[in-house]
Amino acid sequence: MNIAQVFTQTLKQSGKKLVVLLPFSWLLVFFLIPFLIVLQISFSESRIAQPPFTDLTSFVDDVYTISLNLFNYIDLYEYDLYLSGYISSVKIAFTATTLCLLIGYPIAYAIAKLPPHTRNLALMLVILPSWTSFLIRIYAWIGILKQNGLINNALMGLGVIEQPLEILHTPIAVYIGIVYAYLPFMVLPIYTNLVKHDSSLLEAAADLGARPIGSFFKITLPLSVSGIVAGSMLVFIPSVGEFVIPELLGGPDTLMIGKLLWSEFFNARNWPGASAVAVVMLLLLILPITIFQRYQAKDLEEQANEH
């Protein structure tokens, strides 16, 4: 081998390595390591300085000491606020995800039943609102739900109610906000799953004596479980940590952990405390995230097998 060949050889190999190495190291530095730092800082003490937390390690008199401070976690447990914050976050996210599924599944199903050329248009119409600002779409509901907002004005104008309904700054408004913002994330994976279904399976079910309703529950629904799981996780996981929606639509008593973390960080300027909140939230979400990734991987595998 001459030098030129060796050179191109190394270039080829390093080129291949670079393809993996570049994105890999970027994610390592800017996605994975930050979590380790969060974990580390959650064990330190808050102080009034820049940065506002203490070092875990010290090097005094030739002795290297690591002090792990568990107070932040004890605080989380001791203060009712955090515990009920976690519980109510999960509750709200779960309810909202269920609502999203109940609304999103029929929409995905109806789109999958459309003729192919209208299908894409309908799908685009579902996704399109997500391309406008999330913040502004949540903001739109303030005007609709508030005390002298559109719904109350309309209902009072029609004489259905005499006193305006209290909707804004209640959990109901938060549910509406989450369902509204995350509906496309539910519809999309379910649609992708449903549209792949082999129509001859339904014909076979009808042929064997199943009525349309029966075939739906015995064939279509079980076969769309992976779409349902993916959609539910795409809604549930970010909802648990949602900040904007409870902040704008929820009331002072709508406890959500994302909001608590935000105020711990920005208002109380307690960085270690906020880190502990984040670590516990992450632990809480590890199971759903694993489920999501497993289904994602399974789906990718199926796709790979088709080709």
């Binding site: 994610l27 390592l28 530095v29 800017f30 996605f31 994975l32 390591i33 930050p34 979590f35 730092i37 969060v38 800082i41 996780m233 795409l234 996981i237 970010p238 648990v240 940590g241 949602e242 900040f243 994302g258 973390l261 935000w262 960080f265 960085w271 906020a274 880190s275 984040a278 939230m281 992450l282 979400l285 995230i289 999501f292 990734q293 994602q296």
Partner: peptide
């Protein structure tokens, strides 16, 4: 895992962790 996780990661966690980094 690192590629799919950011899709669902709550923003407050991503934001906080990057700031601390």
């Amino acid at each position: 895992g690192m590629i799919t996780a950011p899709l669902v990661m709550p923003e407050v966690i991503t934001g906080l962790s990057l700031l601390l980094l």
